[in-house]
């Protein structure tokens, strides 16, 4: 779906985009945030559930999804382990230890920041505008293998960009997965070609 050159370009764009994202997120949280090198995969619907399950090393996972739209369209999923993100409450202006409802709001807030920063970074490299819908809770502490069922997925191939975050001082960690289904991969390929043009 993506040729070698396009895939390499995407890797490069993701690296730079995530770097920018990291510095924006550090500004928001007032802490240095560790980001992994983005991993780019193209996989079938059958393989997605197990790929997500393998990503998070926890029995119970919480997931928040958020759609992005513009020329690039898709969904991002942020996967949290047992610890979720309660340790970040004060960094986002919550005044008390979060109760269950605040906890969910905090998850949505954190997801919005991470998704916005990372996709914003990638979109900026590709010089394309991107908009976001409100994030919503996808799974509230479910067993890792119950997150997605491949038979519910309507596409056959997807592009997956995965990056994980770590904030050591706050014992916070999560995974961000950007997913684009097959139609959108073609748009991405075109955008990558244009990107490559500018360097030729």
């Amino acid at each position: 779906m993506l040729n070698q050159e396009q895939q390499e370009a995407l890797q490069e764009i993701a690296n730079i985009g995530m770097g920018q994202a990291g510095s924006s997120i550090a500004q928001v949280f007032d802490h240095f945030v560790q980001l992994s090198i983005p991993r780019i995969l193209i996989l079938g619907a059958d393989d997605l559930p197990s790929a997500l399950e393998k990503l998070v090393n926890a029995d119970q996972i919480t997931a928040v999804r958020q759609a992005f739209h513009g020329r690039l369209r898709g969904e991002a999923i942020v996967l949290f382990g047992e610890q979720r993100c309660n340790d970040l409450a004060d960094l986002l202006g919550y005044e008390h230890t979060p109760d269950h409802v605040n906890e969910l709001e905090l998850l949505l807030d954190v997801t919005n920041i991470l998704v916005g920063a990372c996709l914003g970074g990638i979109a900026a490299q590709l010089r394309s505008e991107i908009g976001f819908s409100a994030p919503s809770l996808m799974a509230d502490r479910v067993p890792a293998d119950a997150l997605l069922r491949s038979e519910d997925l309507s596409w056959s191939t997807a592009l997956l960009v995965e990056v994980n975050f770590r904030l050591e001082q706050r014992s916070f960690a999560c995974h961000l997965v950007i997913l684009m289904a097959q139609e959108e991969i073609r748009v991405m390929a075109l955008a990558l070609d244009r990107f490559l043009e500018t360097y030729k």
């Binding site: 924006s24 986002l92 605040n102 920041i113």
Partner: peptide, 26 residues
């Protein structure tokens, strides 16, 4: 909720990105 809301708005300035609240949580 001044502290929280101001932080939220400042993050929008800083990240140049959307933010949301939902009636379900707030």
């Amino acid at each position: 909720p001044a502290k929280w809301l101001e932080k939220k708005i400042r993050n929008v300035f800083m990240l140049k990105n959307y933010a949301f609240t939902s009636w379900e949580q707030r």
